[in-house]
Design a protein around this nucleic acid. Structure first.
Length: 1074
RNA sequence: GGGGCACUAGCUCAGGUGGUUAGAGCGCACCCCUGAUAAGGGUGAGGUCGCUAGUUCGAGUCUAGCGUGCCCCA
């Protein structure tokens, strides 16, 4: 008979195995089949958060990809239909920056000189370079997702869907133009994102000035009185609008030597006035000054849109530096802007976008604002309003690409979505979402929603979804559109220029017609209205793109209406915690805003996802964020070539917890190989080796479960328990917990089942026990393979191919097409699991006794005695008495319920019960019990069912459940105790036992020699030997046993070669292989 | 400056509703087995649970403050 299984090498290269598996998946379209095979199943909807395709993937991206994969594979094996569409986020400043670097140009002007059309094409090329890298990684890590049908955010159909959404917001009055304060790079003419700003801080010395703001028309007690305010940006003073105080702080009015008076916070009196002689003439709350008008230091232009030059209160005013009064210039500060707007004050922006002062600022017109600081201060001094001048050293942001250019905070006209009007709905929707970990819902995400501000959506850049708003250049009337067709209805020739260009150059992608610069040339006129409609110049925030993904991936509503209806909302998404304010927010907000435009069946689901697993951030060994700059990680592809894809996956599943940062490094992946993969592989290789020797036929009828020995029933019961916990954990999106169950099971399988059962597999001839062992291990391996398949898809598919598919042509061709194991009531046996747990506890204690008493396991002992609490416990352990006897190397196993001889009793209060009853007397009760004779109390309790102790408050009766009994082995016995269990060993060694021990030592010496001779495990040998003193008798007595153990066909006294020592006696021998 | 999360053994992590010997795996030390053998297994040593107060008969667990780290926002 040919071998039923392909031989398995215990030496395995998982990386090589991966390559074969990947090739097979590809060739046989296994992924496609896995989706197709379940197409009639209940749908399980998944949204792929589109990775930003502007850089190389790193281990953090690997984590999100495998975190997605495990649930998708699991659901698919459970029978769900799980289509998985990939997606790419292709827009945004980071893409532009990559291209600028490649072209060695920088700034808006440089891009315009290069040509926006050519630049957009470069952006597409750049994006695809990285998409290729991502593809490689995605496939290598075994993330099954449909890459060939990926949605791409720059595609025309995608952009038209985004336009549809924006158009709807525009129609509903939720899209408006306002100001936003940004970090502005004046020389480059662009705003920088927070990330970019963070890269460019350096320490600088800036002027720090205290200015007098005289009270307007100050008379009486206010005569010659000024507010004092502090600033490190004198160039913003010409744009001053207000002064802010802290409403509940105390402000003093101090009369100075020169006859003037100044107002400042009392808390800062000393710091500010330390060089002056002064007298406090008044004290007021900040709130009492609110509304007071003052004379601004400059008056080059009048503020627009509201009143100015008055005191207001603001919550951000601090009393730690400055004067406790803050100069506000809403054009140049976020807080300033927000506060002034809330108070309905005016606006003044006396710096041009290029950073220079406009002509109105006569003295400084044309000069760069920050550079003019010194002269501004001089002018303030000449005008007599400079109170104090110092130098202030602090961190200030510069443009990371030109570190000589300081950034300034600058208010720009910007388009906003009025999310604050609708956020209450989003907050409600959030309550419908199951977040893992759960604290995200009302913590990080909920808090973020609670502090919602309108979404600043426009960007003054080139490569992004163009804002679909057109403005009439004469009337100023605004219009928005939802699609290319909308435009063509207004002007059939709107895209003539694009089509002409495309005729000349067929490589010009159709998608570019909706991008800059082509879209900017699109205009129309309305009948009966003067002027031409021209598009606004902005593109939009690419987060809006990705948030539109539920419908934009289908081009909805312009096409694929049924697709959208089938695939909304998602059952499950997962990304890292940094997406809270990114994709999670944009998805949730946009779906809420757009819900009223969804088909009626979907309006009840304004929450776009039902379950969201929030992953932590991966860091290096020191807790530092992984970053290309620090080179503090190994390229995932390189790591996988070393240890295989499964090892990297398993390390991520077991070492990470949702929502928490995790230190990740190569060793974690190496450990995964040894701890999990290799353990399974060794069991598998053990099974295949003996199954082939024995001719095990997986198709033959197998012994019934009830006829199998307890050991087999036990491992199947453990398997069943594992199936149950893995399923329920995965159903609850707790993949890390399910992984731990698997780990525990594999440990039980290898450490106890296989180790204890090995000899059953090599026993001679046919017998029921062997048949049962093979059947059981086979069933366990097959189910374990399926159970781990979502986690370690490569290795499990190799196992499945050999164990199942090889001799069952009707089986699915891959484990990933198989059904996930179901719970089995037949296999379930919790009592048996408990029995083995008790048994293993006894073995542990017995081994501890041996170690403590230095009794070698090779020396047989007469008896082990187990102290038991009841007959159930006795029966449970007795069931496995052979295992206990072998593990402990004892001749017999005995039980006792009369342990008083061997153990001491200590009584302790059962705190949970006695706490409420005795209250403050608990510690005293504990003390009294501890000092009493525990054994006597225990005897009394056994007899009467209760005991009486005397506390200072009087006698107290305690029942059995009000105390807990603790057993401790008495010192004079070879005993060990733990968790209520006590095991004793009889340490008396008779001559008979001693000789049996010697025989085992002799076996050990010969086996070692066999190994050194590299003999095959089944090689037969002839032995000649000589033995000294008692050894000679021992060998003679146990000659047959020794021969059997070492596979010797003969063993006679004679010639020797190897000399060894057994307990001080010489034993020498010679081995001749047959 | 604001919000969030975390801090338990050398490392990675468990420790519903407070209950008195705080657990696992890895690593380490010692040992066993030698028919899973460049594998398999056992036992053990390691913890003032970030710090300080408080609530309580009792706090790793609850409260407050502080410290450290990380993420997000300013």
């Amino acid at each position: 008979m040919s071998a039923p299984f392909e031989p398995v090498s215990p030496k395995v290269s998982f990386a090589e195995l991966d390559a074969q598996t990947l090739a097979r998946w590809e060739e046989d379209s296994i992924f496609e089949k896995s989706v197709e095979a379940r197409k009639d199943g209940e749908p399980f909807v998944f949204f792929e958060g589109p990775p930003t395709a502007n850089g190389m993937p790193h281990p953090g991206h690997v984590l999100t990809r495998v975190a997605k994969d495990v649930f998708l594979r699991y659901r698919s094996m459970c029978g769900y239909h799980v289509p998985r569409r990939a997606g790419w986020d292709t827009h945004g400043l980071p893409v532009e920056v990559e291209v600028e670097k490649a072209l060695k140009i920088s700034g808006k002007e440089a891009i315009e000189n290069f040509g926006v059309e050519a630049f957009s094409r470069k952006c597409i090329d750049s994006v695809f370079v990285y998409i290729d890298e991502w593809r490689k990684l995605t496939q290598r890590i075994g993330f099954w997702v449909d890459l060939d049908d990926a949605y791409v955010t720059f595609h025309k159909s995608y952009i038209e869907s985004v336009w549809w959404a924006l158009n709807s917001l525009f129609d509903r009055g939720l899209l408006y133009q306002g100001y936003k304060v940004v970090w502005w790079w004046a020389q480059g003419g662009t705003a920088l994102s927070a990330g970019e700003v963070g890269q460019g801080y350096k320490e600088v010395d800036d002027p720090s000035v205290m200015i007098r703001f005289p009270i307007k028309n100050g008379r009486g007690e206010n005569a010659a009185t000024s507010f004092l305010a502090w600033t490190t940006t004198p160039w913003t003073l010409p744009s001053n609008i207000a002064l802010a105080v802290k409403a509940d702080a105390t402000y003093i009015t101090a009369a100075l030597q020169d006859g003037t008076k100044v107002v400042l916070a009392k808390a800062l009196e000393e710091k500010v006035l330390k060089d002056h002689d002064y007298a406090i003439v008044d004290e007021k709350k900040g709130s009492e000054w609110v509304g007071t008008e003052y004379e601004p230091p400059f008056r080059y232009a009048e503020p627009e849109g509201g009143p100015a030059f008055r005191v207001i209160d603001a919550d951000f005013v601090e009393l730690t530096s400055g004067s406790g009064m803050v100069h506000l210039a809403p054009a140049f500060g976020e807080d300033d802007f927000r506060t002034c707007q809330e108070k309905g004050l005016g606006f003044l922006q006396l710096v041009k976008p290029d950073g220079t002062f406009p002509p109105e600022v006569t003295e400084f017109a044309g000069r760069f604002c920050k550079e003019a600081d010194k002269d501004i201060i001089r002018l303030l001094k000449d005008n007599g309003v400079l109170f104090k001048r110092e130098v202030y050293t602090h961190e200030y942001p510069f443009c990371e690409r030109r570190m000589s250019d300081p950034l300034i905070q600058y208010a720009r006209r910007s388009w906003f979505i009025k999310t604050t009007d609708e956020v209450h709905k989003t907050i409600e929707n959030n309550q419908q979402v199951n977040w893992e970990p759960s604290h995200i819902k009302d913590g990080r995400f909920g808090q973020y929603l609670a502090g919602n501000v309108d979404w600043a959506i426009s960007r003054e850049r080139f490569w992004g979804t163009p804002l679909p708003i057109w403005i009439n250049d004469e009337t100023g009337k605004r219009a928005s559109i939802a699609s290319v067709d909308d435009i063509k209805k207004k002007n059939p020739n709107a895209f003539a220029h694009f089509e002409a260009a495309r005729e000349k150059d067929p490589t010009l992608q159709e998608h570019l017609m909706v991008h800059k610069p082509w879209i900017d040339a699109v205009t129309w006129e309305e009948p009966g209205e003067p002027g031409v409609y021209r598009r606004v110049p902005e593109v939009i925030d690419c987060w809006f793109d990705s948030g539109c993904m539920p419908f934009a991936q289908w081009g909805y509503p312009h096409q694929n209406k049924e697709k959208f209806e089938q695939c909304f909302p998602a059952d499950f998404i997962t990304e890292a915690v940094d997406q809270t304010r990114g994709w999670f927010y944009s998805l949730m907000m946009i779906s809420t805003l757009m819900a009223e435009k969804f088909p009626s069946g979907k309006q009840s689901y304004p929450h776009p996802f039902k379950n969201c697993v929030v992953l932590g951030i991966l860091t290096d060994e020191k807790g530092k964020k992984l970053s290309k700059r620090y080179k503090n990680y190994t390229d995932p592809l390189v790591l996988m070539d070393r240890v295989g894809g499964d090892a990297v996956r398993w390390a991520l599943y077991t070492n990470t917890v949702p929502g928490q940062n995790t230190r990740f490094y190569d060793r974690a992946a190496q450990d995964a190989v040894r701890e999990f993969l290799l353990k399974i592989w060794n069991v598998y290789s053990f099974f295949v080796t003996y199954a082939n020797i024995d001719g095990f036929d997986p198709n033959a009828e197998r012994p019934s479960l009830s006829s199998r020995p307890d050991m087999d029933k036990w491992i199947l019961a453990e398997l069943d328990a594992t199936v149950r916990s893995v399923r329920s954990d995965l159903d609850e999106y707790k993949s890390h917990l399910a992984a731990r169950s698997l780990q525990r099971f594999v440990d039980a399988l290898s450490n106890w089942y296989v180790r204890r059962s090995r000899s059953r597999f090599w026993s001679e001839g046919d017998n029921a026990d062997k048949a049962s062992a093979f059947a059981t291990l086979y069933e366990v391996l097959v189910d374990l393979t399926k159970l781990s398949a979502p986690y370690v898809p490569f290795m499990t598919d190799a196992l499945y191919a050999n164990l199942v598919r090889k001799h069952d042509a009707s089986a699915p061709e891959s484990v990933h097409l198989a059904n996930f194991p179901e719970p089995s009531d037949a296999r379930r046996d919790d009592a048996l699991r408990r029995a083995v747990e008790l048994t293993r506890g006894v073995v542990t204690l017995g081994q501890r006794v041996r170690a403590e008493k230095k009794l070698k396991v090779r020396q047989p002992l007469a008896e082990a005695i187990v102290v038991i609490n009841d007959d159930d416990e006795r029966a449970a352990i007795d069931r496995f008495q052979n295992d206990v006897k072998e593990e402990l190397n004892v001749t017999s196993l005995a039980f006792t319920t009369e342990p008083a001889k061997y153990v001491e009793f200590t009584l302790l209060p059962n705190f949970r019960v006695l706490g409420p009853k005795l209250g403050k007397a608990v510690p005293e009760c504990k003390k009294v019990l501890a000092q009493a004779d525990g054994s006597a109390l225990h005897a009394e309790m056994s007899e009467h069912g209760k005991i009486t102790v005397t506390l200072s408050s009087g006698p107290v009766e305690l029942t059995g459940d009000e105390v807990q009994v603790r057993l401790t082995a008495k010192e004079d016995f070879a005993a060990a105790s733990a968790g209520g269990q006590v095991v004793l060993l009889d340490t008396r060694i008779t001559e008979e036992l001693l000789h049996a021990g010697y025989a085992r030592e002799v076996v050990n010496r010969i086996q070692r020699a066999r190994k050194e001779l590299n003999l095959a495990f089944d090689a037969r040998i002839k032995i000649t030997y000589s033995a000294e003193g008692p050894l000679a008798d021992a060998v003679a007595t146990h000659l047959q046993t020794i021969q059997k153990e070492v596979l010797a066909t003969s063993m006679d006294v004679g010639e020797t070669e190897t000399s060894t020592d057994v307990d001080g006696h010489a034993f020498a021998f010679l081995i001749v292989a047959e």
